[in-house]
């Protein structure tokens, strides 16, 4: 029943530019994830073909770094900071709030495909801790109430 909808032609520019440049695997994977939102199996096979790097090695590299994922993510990717400053300023409460509101755990996506949650270590905005980043936007000085409001607004904006 797995039907592939992965359009591999989207990768050709990236591969043309980097496939022959040694040391570019991580860069290629980053571009691939930017295009598809994750690393599709088909794309990994194509990258392997074009770079001559074994698929097993590519998977080895991709699984080493937290940035890469093998499943599509929701429309909104919530990156919740669990760094030291955020920890000291109760990021745990924000995590609980998001889990309660969305009924997902770290690394999961809501059933409606809207939200994915990923805990990260420091977004570099520690002065505004606790902090989360949703897609391109950073939200700081979070409280449970503020978090709920942000999620609500995004949910409403999506329909």
């Amino acid at each position: 029943m797995e039907k592939t909808t992965v359009d591999l032609s989207l990768l050709s520019d990236v591969l043309n530019e980097y496939a022959a440049v040694k040391g570019s695997l991580i860069t290629i994977l980053q571009h691939t994830q930017e295009i598809y939102g994750y690393l599709p199996k088909e794309a990994i096979e194509l990258i392997s073909d074009q770079t001559g790097i074994a698929a097993s090695e590519i998977i080895g590299v991709a699984t080493f770094y937290t940035q890469f994922r093998f499943e599509p993510v929701g429309k909104y990717l919530i990156m919740l900071c669990q760094g030291t400053a955020c920890h000291v300023n109760s990021s745990e409460l924000i995590l609980e709030t998001i889990k309660d509101e969305l009924h997902i755990e770290d690394g999961e996506t809501t059933e409606d495909g809207l939200f994915s949650l990923k805990c990260v270590a420091c977004l570099g905005c520690c002065s505004l801790s606790p902090v989360m980043m949703i897609n391109e936007n950073t939200y700081g000085s979070l409280t449970p109430e503020k978090t709920k409001k942000i999620l609500k607004e995004l949910r409403e904006a999506a329909v």
């Binding site: 040391g23 570019s24 695997l25 991580i26 980053q30 080895g60 080493f64």
Partner: peptide
């Protein structure tokens, strides 16, 4: 410029070099 991919150990200089070369850090 090379963008890291999220691994603390890659701040260690030799791991950083491995990562620059496209390997596990």
């Amino acid at each position: 410029i090379k963008a890291g991919a999220g691994a603390f150990v890659c701040g260690e200089e030799t791991a950083l070099i491995e990562s620059l070369e496209g390997h596990r850090g």
